[in-house]
């Protein structure tokens, strides 16, 4: 790499660390040389190259997860200066120092900044967030989708299961079985699809069980926090409408 180090300029980090899933957490301070256009990931890579605390003592390199480095995979979500977001798009020049990094502790912490988002994938399975198209013969092309609908549905499809909305939600915690905003919005997405709509009732039923859509308390932190700008609260309200209809349908139609 070309030498882009700016003389005598450093960046300070305070990182919350944890050695094992059940170990207590602790913080460590780091001071690394500044380079132009750094993001939090490149700073973490710098710590990985030279795992030394601010006081000069050696330590183990900080663990984190990342993949795409362009805010579409959701893997590098962490709490940066108090707000959950992706580390790849957290530019050092735009952050107040010392930069505080913490894991999104709503999820089980695996190590340091690495968390386990399995509950989100289980939630997607639970609400059947897919479109069944397999058959024993060629089912032919499905019905067409209106362009106006496609436009807003596309926004919902930007969800990368990053977990930021669950971290921000006051009702996603150990005392509450709330499924979280992301999966509810995915029900709206797959129910909007002309083929997915054929299994609409199954997805709504999944939201009307213990820990489903009723866990939403309307704090609306999710929509304020979503890095992709997904209208999560509109999705929740729309699914509130559909589950309410479903409730009365079940009572009155049978």
């Amino acid at each position: 790499m070309a030498d882009t180090t700016v003389a005598n300029k450093t960046i300070k980090f305070i990182i919350t660390r944890q050695d094992k899933p059940d170990a207590p957490s602790y913080t460590e301070q780091f001071e690394i040389p500044y380079r132009q256009n750094m993001n939090v990931i490149s700073a973490l890579m710098e710590i990985q190259r030279n795992p030394q605390k601010a006081d000069g003592a050696g330590t183990s390199p900080v663990c984190w997860e990342s993949n795409c480095l362009e805010e579409v995979c959701g893997a590098c979500s962490m709490v940066i200066n108090g707000k959950p977001r992706q580390a790849c798009t957290a530019l050092v020049d735009k952050l107040e120092q010392p930069i505080r990094l913490e894991p999104m502790s709503t999820f089980p912490v695996v190590r340091d900044l690495v968390i386990n988002r399995e509950r989100m994938f289980n939630a997607l399975k639970r609400v059947k967030a897919w479109i069944p198209i397999d058959g024993t013969y060629d089912l032919g092309p499905g019905p067409r989708m209106a362009e106006t609908k496609r436009q807003w549905a596309y926004e919902l499809s930007k969800c990368m299961t990053c977990g930021v909305c669950l971290e921000a939600c006051p009702n996603v915690n150990d005392r509450n079985s709330f499924i979280g905003p992301a999966a509810i919005s995915q029900v709206r997405l797959f129910n909007a699809h002309p083929t997915g709509e054929m299994n609409k009732a199954e997805r709504l039923d999944a939201l009307m069980e213990e820990g489903g859509i009723e866990g939403c308390g309307n704090s609306q932190n999710c929509v304020r926090s979503c890095p992709k700008g997904i209208p999560l609260t509109t999705s929740i309200a729309a699914m509130n409408k559909d589950t309410t209809k479903q409730l009365f349908k079940k009572w009155l139609d049978f």
């Binding site: 921000a168 006051p170 009702n171 915690n173 509450n176 308390g217 309307n218 704090s219 609306q220 932190n221």
Partner: peptide, 24 residues
């Protein structure tokens, strides 16, 4: 019971609706 199930996180997310959620 619903109140017991909620975290209050207005310290971290000081948005109007989050305050309303907390005050509720």
């Amino acid at each position: 019971y619903i109140a017991y199930q909620s975290n209050l996180n207005t310290g971290q997310y000081h948005y109007g609706r989050n305050w309303a959620f907390t005050f509720q």
